[in-house]
Design a protein around this nucleic acid. Structure first.
Length: 609
DNA sequence: TTAGGGTTAG
């Protein structure tokens, strides 16, 4: 209540009001005053006045005050919540306002909990205002079971006749990828309004059925902005940018979402020139605009470009949000720019942003990938309420640094805290076993994962298992695993196998791995280098020099590939070389990258400050 | 005129 410190008599309108009005909530002039309230300072003064005069005890007054605090322009969520807690028996307006604010701020779990709390501790019933909010929260986090229960509730209470309730359910099923259920809800709606139709279009768009989306769009009696924006998104997802552009140009009115959707279409399809042109031309930008550009660059591997845009945000007077920081940290991790990562960490700390969410996970991951496992661990220890993501990121960090013992210890502690590991946790753990060459533990946990936790191994899990088996020379078992895995092996699997074949002189299997590697990437320099080393190590110079060998032939037209790493304030670049030795020079970089680079025949080629 | 559903960034 620190904000309610000013005297109620300081406000001219309040001075008049406090002069002896009897407290009759329905007719009291505080109501027109509340309606006129536009800025937080005014609201705080009216609030203070209501508390001091006892008017706040009247539910119509307190609920109106709360509703105003729930407006993001007038109050923070924390403050709204504390005002809510001051109301002994909140009415439906109070519950619904707070619920809406939670949903708008994407606090979906809290919103669902609040709705449940409302049903159990208050006499407020589910209605056509709060049910759509609760359904929206379920849609956001894909809480399918909870959403279905709400659907059941609407059937029992006949709330399903309401168009808001219906469209929220329709959108929920669309977002949970149950389009058949969405269509079922849609077919039962008598008055199909714009939002209802748009929800279904969204479902079609997200499931890639652009034809159905277009049919629906064309059959609509009228469009508004949402419909057009959905079509732009739909064609962008399909990579049909010309059609997306047609919609963008044809629409009678554009808003920031239209521009963002079109920019997103360009970035997703790698046309950064058009994306940037549109970005520079648009009349108004929001944080989604900036994030669209940053994530676009980051996802396609243009990390430095992503970080340039990140810097630009500050010069243009915008404030990065969680998504901006997540994407930028991801770019920083990929190119291991630890000093940049540290400055983002400082920014987070300085601005009081919590590490208890995804940002904590990103910082741990960033330090781990940049080789600073100690900083990663001290960040991890700093986080008070650790979530599964933090544990998994730290296990992954230890894993990639070959610190299998630390990874296992953490895994055990995590389970002791009652947390259930997920597929990411096991990815980190198996990576640790593979780096440390711990076959028995690796195999045991690989089995435990599906048997005890019901987690089906992904291609990453298989990759680390193949890597582990190959490293210790169990090449036949590794080969068997590759042939028995239910999905197509990825490039890394063949790389591991091939590099270990060199070490153990397994020419035949190495040949096979190299050919499979080339199938993925016909210009794979790594395949050539690994195979070259394999033949050379076995003294098979005839094969090395055979110009008709399709793999060896690539030597002549191989491209120069480069990578970089920041260490001690300098950026160190690496290019692929014919030499298989990895000369680290002065730098003693503790990174798994070093191991990978080594096996792929990289050498340090240049350094710049 | 105290409260609600559908679009863009992870």
């Amino acid at each position: 209540m620190a904000a309610i410190s000013s005297s109620p008599s300081s406000h001219p309108r309040l001075r008049r009001l406090s002069a002896g009005w009897s407290i009759s909530p329905e007719t009291h002039p505080i109501f027109p005053l509340l309606r006129l309230c536009r800025i937080s300072g005014e609201l705080e003064q009216i609030h203070a006045f209501a508390v001091k005069t006892g008017l706040f005890h009247a539910l119509p007054v307190s609920s109106r005050i709360l509703t105003l605090y729930c407006d993001p322009e007038l109050g923070s969520l924390g403050f709204a919540r504390s005002v809510f807690d001051q109301i002994p028996q909140p009415n439906s307006f109070a519950w619904n306002s707070l619920l809406k604010r939670l949903v708008d701020e994407k606090r979906s779990h809290d919103a669902i909990l609040l709705f449940q709390q409302m049903l159990t501790v208050s006499s407020v019933l589910p209605d056509n205002y709060n049910v759509p909010c609760a359904v929206k929260a379920c849609a956001h986090i894909h809480a399918f079971e909870e959403g279905k229960q709400l659907h059941g509730l609407t059937v029992k209470t006949r709330l399903g006749d309401d168009s808001f309730v219906r469209s929220s359910l329709l959108s929920f099923y669309s977002k949970c990828s149950h389009l058949e259920l969405a269509k079922k809800v849609f077919d039962h709606v008598c008055d199909k309004d714009l939002a209802t139709r748009n929800s279904l279009i969204d479902g079609y768009v997200k499931s890639g059925n652009i034809e159905a989306a277009r049919k629906m769009f064309e059959e609509m009696p009228k469009w508004d902005l949402f419909s057009w924006n959905l079509m732009i998104t739909g064609y962008s997802i399909r990579g049909e940018l010309e059609v997306a552009w047609e919609f963008f140009e044809r629409m009678p009115e554009k808003n920031v979402v239209s521009w963002n959707a079109m920019i997103g279409g360009f970035t997703k399809n790698g046309d950064f020139g058009s994306a940037r042109r549109l970005f520079d031309e648009m009349p108004y930008k929001n944080m989604v605009t900036w994030n669209t550009l940053i994530t676009g660059y980051q996802k396609l591997g243009f990390y430095e470009e992503a970080l340039k845009v990140f810097d630009e945000i500050f010069t243009k007077g915008f404030t990065p949000n969680t998504i901006t920081l997540v994407s930028s940290l991801s770019a920083i991790s990929e190119i291991a720019l630890v000093e940049r990562g540290r400055s983002v960490h400082m920014y987070i700390r300085k601005n009081g942003l919590s590490l208890e969410g995804i940002l904590g996970t990103c910082i741990i991951e960033m330090y781990s990938k940049c080789g600073e496992i100690d900083s990663a661990f001290s960040t991890f220890k700093e986080i008070r309420r650790k979530k599964l993501g933090h544990w998994s990121a730290m296990i992954m960090g230890f894993g990639m640094h070959g610190m299998a013992k630390e990874a296992i210890d953490l895994f055990i502690k995590m389970k002791e805290r009652g947390l259930k590991p997920d597929y990411i946790t096991f990815t980190g753990l198996l990576n640790g076993f593979s780096k440390a060459g711990m076959v028995d533990d690796g195999l045991q946990n690989f089995e435990l994962m599906s048997k005890e936790y019901g987690i089906e191994p992904t291609v990453e899990h298989y990759t680390y298992m193949v890597d582990l088996l190959s490293r210790v020379g169990h090449l036949e078992e590794a080969k068997k695993l590759v042939y028995h895995m239910p999905m197509r092996p990825k490039k890394m699997i063949w790389m591991s196998l091939l590099s270990c074949c060199r070490r153990y002189g397994e020419i035949e299997l190495g040949d096979l791995a190299a050919k499979s590697l080339v199938e993925f990437d016909p210009d794979s320099t790594a395949a050539y280098l690994l195979l070259y080393n394999l033949y050379a190590a076995a003294g098979l110079w005839g094969k090395v020099l055979n110009p008709r060998d399709p793999i060896m032939e690539r030597r002549a037209r191989k491209k120069t590939e480069s990578n970089s790493i920041e260490f001690n304030g300098s950026v160190h670049g690496f290019v692929i070389s014919d030499h298989s030795r990895f000369k680290t020079g002065e730098t003693n970089v503790k990174l798994e990258m070093r191991v990978r680079l080594n096996s792929a025949g990289f050498v340090q080629a240049y350094s710049r400050n």
